[in-house]
Design a protein around this nucleic acid. Sequence first.
DNA 1: TATACAATGATAAACATTCTCAGTTTAACG
DNA 2: CGTTAAACTGAGAATGTTTATCATTGTATA
Lengths: 359, 359
Amino acid sequence: MTINKENDIAEITRRWLSELELKGQRRSTINDVARLAGVSKKTVSRVINKSADVRESTRLKVETVVQAINFQPNVQARGLASRHAYLVGVIYDNPNPQYTVNMQQGILEGLKGSGYELVVHPCDRNQPDFVQEAKQFIERQKLRGVILTPSVSEDERMADMLRYIGCDYLRIASVKLDDAKHMMVSNDKFGGIAVANHLCELGHRRIAFVTGKKGFRSSEERQKGFESGLAEYGLALEAKYIAQGQYTFESGIEAGHQLLALRPMPTAIFAANDEMAAGVLQAMRIKQFRAPDNISIVGYDDFQIAKNVWPRLTTVHVPIASMGKLAAEHMLAMGTSNEPGPEITPWLIERESSGPPPK
Amino acid sequence: MTINKENDIAEITRRWLSELELKGQRRSTINDVARLAGVSKKTVSRVINKSADVRESTRLKVETVVQAINFQPNVQARGLASRHAYLVGVIYDNPNPQYTVNMQQGILEGLKGSGYELVVHPCDRNQPDFVQEAKQFIERQKLRGVILTPSVSEDERMADMLRYIGCDYLRIASVKLDDAKHMMVSNDKFGGIAVANHLCELGHRRIAFVTGKKGFRSSEERQKGFESGLAEYGLALEAKYIAQGQYTFESGIEAGHQLLALRPMPTAIFAANDEMAAGVLQAMRIKQFRAPDNISIVGYDDFQIAKNVWPRLTTVHVPIASMGKLAAEHMLAMGTSNEPGPEITPWLIERESSGPPPK
DNA sequence: TATACAATGATAAACATTCTCAGTTTAACG
DNA sequence: CGTTAAACTGAGAATGTTTATCATTGTATA
């Protein structure tokens, strides 16, 4: 039996519509497809689930009918029979909305065409039952898998729970904390190195660092990379030039005041994220200093705020949406493969906030 | 048969655990509940779905068992039988991440305890098939309902589609565009009035306005309210004091430059959102003007950026998370009631960017 | 021609609910 | 006390897939 796709679709559609008329409006089911294609529903199921053991010509027949009557498998029925929903979850506690939204957008991009949708679950690690709550969420909806973003991705209690209930998961973090299969590493160390190179090449020697929230891997890695980058130029990060921040704008202001009070003053300040860098800029403005003439400022993340301050921030761009897309793709492949998760390398974006040190 | 709750729970739990041992690990089903409670599964179903026609004593029996064996109904099976998933969707195209995230958080809050989860669907109204895509999304997952945020909430093509497929929906917008049942109005006009009052009370007479994106109801309403507020003080918004913006920081800078070039210069500028207000502030900085000494600036939304600029912005606070919560609650109630959606009134937050006009 | 293997089908059994409809209690009323 | 309506309850069908088990058919290779 040869297939003339266009004619067949028209013909099958016609037959289907006349059947509909007889039986009253009703959505098409796998049985309809099977009947119209002249195969068993088992075979239709095989085609839909992309099983390998289907002859090319058979697949074509089935696909033609699927298209003709616009068959969409019922997700609930599939879920009931296969014991998992066509849903992927993202569990997050990152307080930055731009991170969250870009990540969601990327994940959705990666999910596109797969039939999976994204369900969101913010969590609060200060709540004693946040793991239990996530567990309920996953089990109730029978999620196919979850993607974890920092900093909850660094939480071993959450990871333990996921392993325990046997749910596929992918942890996005700055360091490899788990089986490579379950990790997507964003190389924050590299970003730190890039900043060190940039500032050293500009000629800076007295360089300060504003840390992020205590215990956050991202901040630690950025600092480690920064220090090792400085070391290549024979420099060390002196303790007095390290200010503790909280990843917030306000903490950036405070850190800025603290660093600006030092003598000799640093000629460059690297803050572990853009918000704090903007805060440092704010502190400078209050004290009548200007960037980059007096002090160069560098941030990290390349969020909107980096472009909404003046001077605009030199910063490290992290391709969050791309990461989300890769994460989703990896997640979907996880069922059938054991490949390690992808590694992401951020890059430096030079803007007006950094320049040569003052003479 | 009397119920002694505590004893019964212990007893039933014991029996259930011993059964589990016999049959191997397995999740509990409605049949287990029915058997242990000595009723039919239909009755258990009635209890779970809070049907009215169940005797108090029966309900108690069933609830005791449900609690004892920690029964959680299978969402897929419910979905298959009832033709809708335990999912609510949010469809959005608001470019501001903070809006999106706060809204999601609020919706989730309102969904808490209901067993419903939230699935997200950004869309792009420039794509010709964005409605079709949303339709597929809803029908594939058989969503219980969707919440629409601006500006896609203002799109009649989307609303038509939702009515056509019979999906419950709630449109969040600045004006009543639909049946009250399907609307949640955020009173942007009121916000505009509040700003006018504030500036007029401070003594301003030459006041400028920066509009948002053309065709956006929010901007139009804010402007309308602003004008009517000015009118109460015998003022009108002159055409030359209206600058067209795009709701972006950059467009705020441009609008700022344009307004600062006017003579006589306005003594106050109201921008239709915070980002543009920050942009105006940026333009002022470049031209060596200071707020509020030379010109007062007022924004709208009270997003993070309002606090991350100096001077911090006087602005109109919109309680987005609360709106999300109310929206979710209204959505869930929509199945059984025809109540109109809630109306939200924003309020003014005074900060350092506004003050009396220069003498 | 025999053999192995890939492709396919028939059939029934899950999967765990809701829903239809009829049957049984219960309470109220004369 | 019987009657009747209303409240409550249950048996079994329906929902649309996947999965398991075998049996069968076609197809290429030795």
